[in-house]
Simulated assay, not measured.
Amino acid sequence: SESHILPKDIYKAHDEAVARLNAMKREVVRKEFAKRAKELKELEMRVQGYQFLLPKDAKELIEEGKSLEMCVGGSSYINSHANGETTIVFIRRATELDKPYYTLEYRDEKIIQLHGYKNKNADKFLQEASNEWLKRVNELIGGEIRHVS
């Protein structure tokens, strides 16, 4: 009878609407990642044998999180990076550019977090290089990074 048709269609329509919305959100996030990677390319530099890189898309952030077994691939970091609340930066050994090594979070001209595999803390060499990176970045862009919309 007809009473069974309606709910099924409503659920299907709802699922399709949710799927479309999620796709749109992903597209917005993708565009924001690309935009931020372009706007903040001054953050990408080599310091003392380490390469500092920006994630080009959310997938890279997810892969980084999986590879290093840390929460940087979670949706809160993806959204915070996409909307400019915070900036996630990948650190690679200059000799192994494809291999996740450490990840840092940069916000309000400071390094908020710097972690490697399973949230391991950085050794003094990487800390030194990261502080050098921070100094250069803050000199380059002053306080402007916070106002990237």
Rank of each mutant, 00 (worst) to 15 (best):
E16P: 02
E42F: 14
Q51P: 08
I62E: 04
P55D: 04
I141P: 08
K38F: 10
K35W: 15
N138L: 00
L104Y: 05
G49R: 07
E96T: 09
A94T: 12
G84P: 06
S3H: 10
Q113G: 03
E139F: 08
S3C: 11
S76K: 05
H115M: 14
L40Q: 10
L40W: 08
S130E: 02
I145F: 05
R46C: 15
T86S: 10
A82V: 13
Y50P: 05
G65H: 01
K12C: 05
S1A: 15
S76T: 04
V29Q: 06
P55T: 00
P55L: 00
I78C: 05
G73A: 01
K118S: 08
R36Q: 05
A82G: 00
L126S: 09
G143I: 15
Y102A: 10
E105M: 07
Y50S: 11
K41N: 13
R30P: 00
S130T: 06
M24S: 10
E109K: 12
E144H: 14
Q127V: 04
N131K: 11
T103A: 02
K118C: 13
E69H: 14
R46A: 14
A34H: 04
N138D: 05
L134W: 05
E105P: 04
Q127L: 13
Y102P: 09
K12D: 08
I88F: 00
M45E: 02
I141F: 09
A17L: 09
R146S: 12
G73R: 00
L104A: 03
V18W: 02
L61K: 00
L68E: 02
Y11P: 09
E16Q: 13
S67K: 15
H147I: 15
L43E: 01
K124D: 15
V148G: 01
D15K: 13
M70K: 03
K8D: 09
E144N: 14
N83P: 02
G116K: 02
F33N: 00
E128C: 10
M70W: 11
I88H: 01
Y106N: 01
I145V: 12
